[in-house]
Amino acid sequence: MQSLMLIISFLVLISALMVILSEDMVHSALFLIFSFGGVGALFLSVGAQFLGAIQILIYTGAVGVMMLLMIYFTSKEGKSIKREGKYSGIVLVGLLGFLILYPSISITREVGGTKGLTQNIGRLLFSDLLIPFEVISIVLLSAIIGATYIIRREDH
């Protein structure tokens, strides 16, 4: 199990890297979906069943498809534009990675434990996290309306 998870983690990272590096937009979208899926698997491995499910449903399903759709709408060649500051970016990010990784390498905590069943999460969302939940619903609603407003055509 442990080694499987390690492999999945490795694949997630690789595909995430490929999202950034691949020239083709469609490829990077597909790599993104793959990476999301991997993360979902990681969720399931710690017993977060509900989250694992919505990870796959929302990210790989909704978000990934939306990304692909938008890529088809916008870029005719489907090619991404060049990157800038490749190496200085690597240096900076590497520096940050070093700085974060250095203290966290020694963490040896257990993860998981509690079962993230749907009913548990549902109960939690409607009790302790009720107000954030309601706020999120409003945010979603306004995001939908906003998005619709933004992409409406002026001449209609």
Partner: peptide, 11 residues
């Protein structure tokens, strides 16, 4: 389960 690979992945 040890947190190591989660951390590595998230970082």
């Amino acid at each position: 389960m040890i947190a190591f690979h989660f951390l590595i992945t998230s970082i």
